[in-house]
Simulated assay, not measured.
Amino acid sequence: MDQLLHHLRHLGFTEMESKIMVELARQGSASGYEVAKRLGVSRSNVYATLQRLEQRGFLRCGAGEPAKYSVLKPEEMTRMISGQMRDSLNYVQSSMPQHEPEKPAFYNIEGDKKVFETLKRQLAEAKHEIVIDVWREEIESLHEDLQQAEDRGVRLLWSCEEGEGMLEQPLPWPGMPAYADGEGRKFSLVVDRCWCMLGMRGQGSVTQAVVTEHPVMTGLLLNHFAQDLVLFELEQDMGEALEARYGRRYERLSARYWSKPTDGNGST
């Protein structure tokens, strides 16, 4: 009984309306006086509620004196409620004011604790894929979170010498130097291709990171990651030929683009 009254109230009926409908369903039909006597409430409240329910179409009033009321069959009542709720939902969907969606924001985080707390929360919410480019020091702090993500079916992709998805031996891909004038180690992560973090940590610097869902930034990080893995695959297939032409780890080739510029006197 209590459960039935609870669900009727959940559908928008008042407590008095719910009790009257249940009582009429139990009795088949009854006058206002009989309902009031059965429920132990005032006749004025019962009569007002009966008239309201009849106007809304949930009760039928028979001819005669005194007038007797009966409630709709359960299937009729639920069909009527379902139709009314569907109409209301459709109206709300089509008529609710809308505003322009907010543009993805960029926000900064400082401090080791805040950066890792933010990162761990996002890793726990990952559903499909995590793309990660970090160093051994960061991997050790995130190992458990990443393992949990992989255990629940999230795809993990790494920028590391052992290929993708190797939690056991996370090694950095040899690209730009890990450190640059004491700035620290650069790291980046992309979660489900819609959230990313790009930051720097270590070497005596304050841990800092930029977090955003902007598609341009996530696209740039994903493209950079893909290019690194393509180069890695090429090195595996053509290692000796590439090393003979460009030097180990493409040092001569990368020096054209990553070496610091010099002034006219040859100094940096």
Rank of each mutant, 00 (worst) to 15 (best):
G165V: 04
H214A: 14
C194I: 08
E251D: 11
Y107I: 01
T78Y: 12
L234N: 02
H224V: 00
H143R: 15
L8C: 02
R185Y: 12
K114W: 01
W173F: 15
S205G: 10
T49H: 05
Y257P: 01
A226S: 13
E150R: 10
H7R: 14
H214P: 01
R252L: 09
G219W: 00
R79H: 08
R152I: 03
K37Q: 15
V211W: 07
D112A: 08
R79S: 15
C196G: 15
G111M: 07
R56H: 11
E129S: 11
W135Q: 12
G32D: 03
E15Q: 09
L4M: 09
D228H: 06
M166W: 07
Y246F: 15
Q169D: 12
L72Y: 03
E17S: 13
V230N: 04
V131L: 14
V191I: 15
Q148P: 00
Q98D: 01
T218M: 03
G111S: 08
M176G: 05
L253R: 06
I109R: 04
A36R: 06
G264S: 11
R249Q: 14
E17T: 02
D181M: 08
C160I: 00
E76M: 07
K114G: 02
G202N: 05
V46M: 05
K114T: 07
E15N: 08
L59N: 04
S141G: 00
Y107W: 15
A244E: 12
R155H: 05
R26K: 10
G12S: 03
D112F: 12
V206H: 06
H99I: 10
Y107G: 00
R249V: 03
A180N: 09
V190H: 01
A124E: 14
V92D: 06
L4F: 11
E183R: 08
T268P: 01
S205W: 02
D87L: 12
F187H: 03
E117V: 09
S18Y: 03
D263I: 01
V92Y: 11
K19S: 04
L253N: 02
S88L: 15
K103D: 02
E34V: 08
R256K: 13
F106L: 14
